[in-house]
Design a protein around this nucleic acid. Structure first.
Lengths: 97, 97
DNA sequence: ACTTACGGTAAGTGGATGCTAACGGACAGC
DNA sequence: GCTGTCCGTTAGCATCCACTTACCGTAAGT
Protein backbone atom coordinates (compact mmCIF):
# COMPACT_ATOMS: atom_id res chain seq x y z
CA UNK A 1 0.00 0.00 0.00
CA UNK A 2 3.02 2.21 0.44
CA UNK A 3 3.13 2.06 -3.33
CA UNK A 4 0.06 4.26 -3.54
CA UNK A 5 1.42 6.88 -1.18
CA UNK A 6 2.98 9.15 -3.78
CA UNK A 7 0.50 11.43 -5.59
CA UNK A 8 2.22 11.08 -8.94
CA UNK A 9 2.23 7.34 -8.63
CA UNK A 10 -1.44 7.35 -7.77
CA UNK A 11 -2.02 9.48 -10.87
CA UNK A 12 -0.18 6.91 -12.96
CA UNK A 13 -2.19 4.15 -11.38
CA UNK A 14 -5.46 5.89 -12.08
CA UNK A 15 -4.57 6.36 -15.72
CA UNK A 16 -4.69 2.60 -15.92
CA UNK A 17 -8.12 2.40 -14.39
CA UNK A 18 -9.88 2.45 -17.74
CA UNK A 19 -7.75 -0.19 -19.39
CA UNK A 20 -4.22 -1.01 -20.64
CA UNK A 21 -1.90 1.84 -21.60
CA UNK A 22 1.61 2.27 -22.96
CA UNK A 23 4.15 4.20 -20.94
CA UNK A 24 4.55 7.13 -23.28
CA UNK A 25 0.86 7.83 -23.36
CA UNK A 26 0.74 8.06 -19.60
CA UNK A 27 3.78 10.29 -19.43
CA UNK A 28 2.30 12.60 -22.03
CA UNK A 29 -0.47 13.91 -19.83
CA UNK A 30 1.51 14.01 -16.62
CA UNK A 31 3.92 16.76 -15.57
CA UNK A 32 6.83 14.35 -15.18
CA UNK A 33 9.31 12.78 -17.54
CA UNK A 34 8.88 9.37 -19.10
CA UNK A 35 11.58 7.66 -17.04
CA UNK A 36 9.80 8.83 -13.91
CA UNK A 37 6.67 7.08 -15.10
CA UNK A 38 8.69 3.97 -15.84
CA UNK A 39 10.02 3.97 -12.31
CA UNK A 40 6.59 4.42 -10.85
CA UNK A 41 5.28 1.57 -12.94
CA UNK A 42 8.10 -0.61 -11.70
CA UNK A 43 7.12 0.11 -8.11
CA UNK A 44 3.49 -0.60 -8.86
CA UNK A 45 4.46 -3.83 -10.57
CA UNK A 46 6.60 -4.94 -7.63
CA UNK A 47 3.67 -4.16 -5.38
CA UNK A 48 1.48 -6.46 -7.43
CA UNK A 49 -0.85 -3.67 -8.48
CA UNK A 50 -0.20 -3.74 -12.21
CA UNK A 51 0.97 -6.24 -14.79
CA UNK A 52 3.11 -5.70 -17.85
CA UNK A 53 2.77 -7.03 -21.36
CA UNK A 54 4.99 -6.41 -24.33
CA UNK A 55 3.41 -5.39 -27.59
CA UNK A 56 6.09 -4.92 -30.19
CA UNK A 57 8.28 -2.05 -29.08
CA UNK A 58 5.66 -0.84 -26.64
CA UNK A 59 4.74 -2.15 -23.24
CA UNK A 60 1.20 -2.21 -22.11
CA UNK A 61 0.50 -1.87 -18.42
CA UNK A 62 -2.79 -2.80 -16.89
CA UNK A 63 -4.31 -2.96 -13.43
CA UNK A 64 -3.92 -6.26 -11.61
CA UNK A 65 -7.30 -7.10 -10.08
CA UNK A 66 -5.67 -9.29 -7.45
CA UNK A 67 -3.64 -6.43 -6.06
CA UNK A 68 -6.60 -4.09 -5.89
CA UNK A 69 -8.68 -6.81 -4.28
CA UNK A 70 -6.05 -7.28 -1.57
CA UNK A 71 -6.14 -3.63 -0.54
CA UNK A 72 -9.88 -3.52 -0.82
CA UNK A 73 -10.19 -6.51 1.48
CA UNK A 74 -7.79 -4.98 3.98
CA UNK A 75 -9.94 -1.87 4.31
CA UNK A 76 -13.14 -3.84 4.37
CA UNK A 77 -11.90 -5.85 7.31
CA UNK A 78 -10.51 -2.80 9.05
CA UNK A 79 -13.78 -1.05 8.47
CA UNK A 80 -15.79 -3.84 10.05
CA UNK A 81 -13.62 -4.15 13.13
CA UNK A 82 -13.30 -0.44 13.68
CA UNK A 83 -16.99 0.14 13.25
CA UNK A 84 -17.83 -2.63 15.69
CA UNK A 85 -15.45 -1.18 18.25
CA UNK A 86 -16.84 2.27 17.63
CA UNK A 87 -20.39 1.16 18.21
CA UNK A 88 -19.42 -0.78 21.31
CA UNK A 89 -17.64 2.25 22.71
CA UNK A 90 -20.56 4.56 21.92
CA UNK A 91 -22.91 2.14 23.64
CA UNK A 92 -20.96 1.66 26.85
CA UNK A 93 -20.45 5.40 26.95
CA UNK A 94 -24.14 6.02 26.59
CA UNK A 95 -24.72 3.66 29.46
CA UNK A 96 -22.20 5.25 31.81
CA UNK A 97 -23.03 8.82 30.97
CA UNK B 1 -4.11 7.89 2.02
CA UNK B 2 -0.50 8.98 2.03
CA UNK B 3 -0.99 9.00 5.78
CA UNK B 4 -1.11 5.22 5.79
CA UNK B 5 2.03 4.80 3.73
CA UNK B 6 4.49 4.58 6.60
CA UNK B 7 4.62 1.14 8.26
CA UNK B 8 5.02 2.55 11.75
CA UNK B 9 2.09 4.85 11.25
CA UNK B 10 0.00 1.97 10.00
CA UNK B 11 1.00 0.07 13.13
CA UNK B 12 -0.16 3.00 15.25
CA UNK B 13 -3.38 3.15 13.31
CA UNK B 14 -4.03 -0.54 13.75
CA UNK B 15 -3.50 -0.31 17.49
CA UNK B 16 -6.61 1.85 17.45
CA UNK B 17 -8.64 -0.66 15.56
CA UNK B 18 -10.01 -2.27 18.70
CA UNK B 19 -11.01 0.94 20.42
CA UNK B 20 -9.71 4.18 21.96
CA UNK B 21 -6.17 4.26 23.34
CA UNK B 22 -3.87 6.73 25.09
CA UNK B 23 -0.60 7.71 23.48
CA UNK B 24 1.70 6.15 26.04
CA UNK B 25 0.06 2.78 25.77
CA UNK B 26 0.58 2.72 22.02
CA UNK B 27 4.18 3.79 22.29
CA UNK B 28 4.85 1.10 24.86
CA UNK B 29 4.45 -1.78 22.46
CA UNK B 30 6.08 -0.14 19.48
CA UNK B 31 9.81 0.16 18.83
CA UNK B 32 9.68 3.94 18.62
CA UNK B 33 9.66 6.77 21.13
CA UNK B 34 6.52 8.43 22.44
CA UNK B 35 7.03 11.70 20.57
CA UNK B 36 7.24 9.73 17.35
CA UNK B 37 3.84 8.24 18.10
CA UNK B 38 2.50 11.71 18.86
CA UNK B 39 3.67 12.93 15.50
CA UNK B 40 2.13 9.99 13.73
CA UNK B 41 -1.14 10.57 15.49
CA UNK B 42 -1.04 14.17 14.42
CA UNK B 43 -0.68 13.14 10.80
CA UNK B 44 -3.50 10.64 11.13
CA UNK B 45 -5.65 13.28 12.74
CA UNK B 46 -4.94 15.81 9.99
CA UNK B 47 -5.83 13.12 7.49
CA UNK B 48 -9.20 12.66 9.16
CA UNK B 49 -8.49 9.08 10.11
CA UNK B 50 -8.55 9.46 13.88
CA UNK B 51 -10.13 11.78 16.41
CA UNK B 52 -8.75 13.01 19.70
CA UNK B 53 -10.41 13.35 23.06
CA UNK B 54 -8.94 14.62 26.29
CA UNK B 55 -9.42 12.56 29.41
CA UNK B 56 -7.72 14.29 32.30
CA UNK B 57 -4.02 14.35 31.63
CA UNK B 58 -4.36 11.66 29.00
CA UNK B 59 -5.55 11.91 25.42
CA UNK B 60 -7.59 9.17 23.93
CA UNK B 61 -7.31 8.58 20.21
CA UNK B 62 -9.85 6.60 18.29
CA UNK B 63 -10.52 5.66 14.69
CA UNK B 64 -12.71 8.06 12.73
CA UNK B 65 -15.24 5.95 10.81
CA UNK B 66 -15.71 8.71 8.26
CA UNK B 67 -12.07 8.67 7.26
CA UNK B 68 -11.98 4.91 6.89
CA UNK B 69 -15.20 4.99 4.91
CA UNK B 70 -13.71 7.51 2.49
CA UNK B 71 -10.75 5.30 1.66
CA UNK B 72 -12.91 2.22 1.54
CA UNK B 73 -15.22 3.93 -0.95
CA UNK B 74 -12.30 5.03 -3.07
CA UNK B 75 -11.10 1.47 -3.46
CA UNK B 76 -14.56 0.12 -3.99
CA UNK B 77 -15.09 2.48 -6.89
CA UNK B 78 -11.65 1.83 -8.27
CA UNK B 79 -12.27 -1.87 -7.97
CA UNK B 80 -15.50 -1.69 -9.91
CA UNK B 81 -14.12 0.39 -12.76
CA UNK B 82 -10.92 -1.58 -13.05
CA UNK B 83 -12.73 -4.89 -13.02
CA UNK B 84 -15.16 -3.72 -15.68
CA UNK B 85 -12.31 -2.56 -17.87
CA UNK B 86 -10.47 -5.78 -17.26
CA UNK B 87 -13.41 -7.91 -18.28
CA UNK B 88 -14.05 -5.78 -21.34
CA UNK B 89 -10.44 -6.13 -22.40
CA UNK B 90 -10.43 -9.87 -21.83
CA UNK B 91 -13.57 -10.16 -23.92
CA UNK B 92 -12.44 -8.14 -26.91
CA UNK B 93 -9.16 -10.01 -26.77
CA UNK B 94 -10.88 -13.34 -26.78
CA UNK B 95 -12.80 -12.21 -29.82
CA UNK B 96 -9.79 -11.09 -31.79
CA UNK B 97 -7.58 -14.00 -30.86
C1' DA C 1 2.48 24.51 46.70
C1' DC C 2 5.25 20.43 45.23
C1' DT C 3 5.75 16.31 42.81
C1' DT C 4 4.76 13.05 39.35
C1' DA C 5 2.69 11.35 35.12
C1' DC C 6 1.11 12.35 30.54
C1' DG C 7 1.74 14.27 26.23
C1' DG C 8 2.40 18.01 22.56
C1' DT C 9 6.17 20.88 20.25
C1' DA C 10 10.78 22.47 18.38
C1' DA C 11 15.20 21.58 16.53
C1' DG C 12 18.39 18.81 14.35
C1' DT C 13 19.92 14.74 11.77
C1' DG C 14 20.26 10.50 8.84
C1' DG C 15 18.08 7.83 5.51
C1' DA C 16 14.78 7.12 1.98
C1' DT C 17 12.92 8.54 -2.51
C1' DG C 18 11.11 11.03 -6.53
C1' DC C 19 13.04 13.54 -10.31
C1' DT C 20 15.97 14.55 -14.40
C1' DA C 21 19.68 13.76 -17.68
C1' DA C 22 22.27 10.47 -20.18
C1' DC C 23 22.84 6.02 -21.93
C1' DG C 24 21.80 1.39 -23.90
C1' DG C 25 18.85 -2.15 -25.85
C1' DA C 26 14.88 -4.04 -28.66
C1' DC C 27 11.67 -3.87 -32.41
C1' DA C 28 9.49 -1.98 -36.90
C1' DG C 29 9.93 0.15 -41.50
C1' DC C 30 12.49 1.77 -45.29
C1' DG D 1 21.82 -2.44 -42.38
C1' DC D 2 20.18 2.02 -40.98
C1' DT D 3 17.11 5.01 -38.84
C1' DG D 4 13.61 6.22 -35.77
C1' DT D 5 10.60 5.06 -31.98
C1' DC D 6 9.61 3.19 -27.60
C1' DC D 7 11.15 2.05 -23.19
C1' DG D 8 14.03 0.31 -19.15
C1' DT D 9 18.24 1.48 -16.32
C1' DT D 10 21.84 4.12 -14.08
C1' DA D 11 23.87 8.01 -11.74
C1' DG D 12 23.46 11.93 -9.35
C1' DC D 13 20.89 15.31 -6.91
C1' DA D 14 17.46 17.65 -4.17
C1' DT D 15 13.94 17.09 -1.16
C1' DC D 16 11.15 15.08 2.16
C1' DC D 17 10.27 12.67 6.28
C1' DA D 18 10.57 9.67 10.34
C1' DC D 19 13.10 9.59 14.44
C1' DT D 20 15.37 11.18 18.82
C1' DT D 21 16.58 14.52 22.30
C1' DA D 22 15.33 18.28 24.97
C1' DC D 23 11.91 21.33 26.65
C1' DC D 24 7.33 23.15 28.23
C1' DG D 25 2.52 23.01 29.62
C1' DT D 26 -1.29 20.71 32.08
C1' DA D 27 -3.79 17.87 35.28
C1' DA D 28 -4.09 14.82 39.47
C1' DG D 29 -2.50 13.43 44.03
C1' DT D 30 -0.35 14.43 48.48
Amino acid sequence: MAALADPTRRAVFERLRGGPRPVGEIARDLPVSRPAVSQHLRVLKDAGLVTERRDGTRRLYRVDPNGVAAIRDYFDEFWNEALAAFKAAAESEGRET
